[in-house]
Amino acid sequence: MYGPALPVFTPILGLTVNVLAQVVSFRIKGRLSLLHTIFIGFISGLITMSVIDVITLSYNKCSLIYFIAIIIANIIIYGSLGYCYFHFINLGETARRIRLLREIYDSDVGLTTSELLKLYNAKEVLSYRIERLLQNKQIHLQNDRYLIGNPTILWFANIITFLKYLVLGKRSEFD
């Protein structure tokens, strides 16, 4: 049992600060990339939540074990919410389904498949991703052939393949 209700809701308060800080920093931008602003938002929310939790729980004079348990619980909640927010931003930035829905939304009477493919297609998907992989040096181009650069994303790809196999029983949606 512990005192007031505030520590229950501080992760939500932290998420609110996260979103506000990320949106404001992205709009101000300057040299900040989207990823930088996501990081700024996450840290801002985490600090806000942690400070309020420490002050509130210290004021309540609860036992050390409860203090630590509530802090850990709230970090897990905030971390999960922050992760969801990161993915929400990422969906808007890169998800094909979102882009397809957006194109249909922007049309007045809907779109045929061929009209939709003229607006958004595999060529655009590939070109955007290859440009990003080249910029981040995860691949490089040599004699018109792509080669692996920094292997970090390859390790990540292998982890995802393993998780797919664990949960879905297959390594690819086309298996």
Binding site: L126, R129, L133, I139, L141, R145, Y146, I148, I160, E173
Partner: peptide, 29 residues
Amino acid sequence: ITYSALEADSPSLVIIRMIAEAMPTGLAK
């Protein structure tokens, strides 16, 4: 939200795996 990323193959990760499988010669554009 992680699961939805597992359902569909991410194009970036597919590209990376295809290039890795073609190493050491690499994959033509």
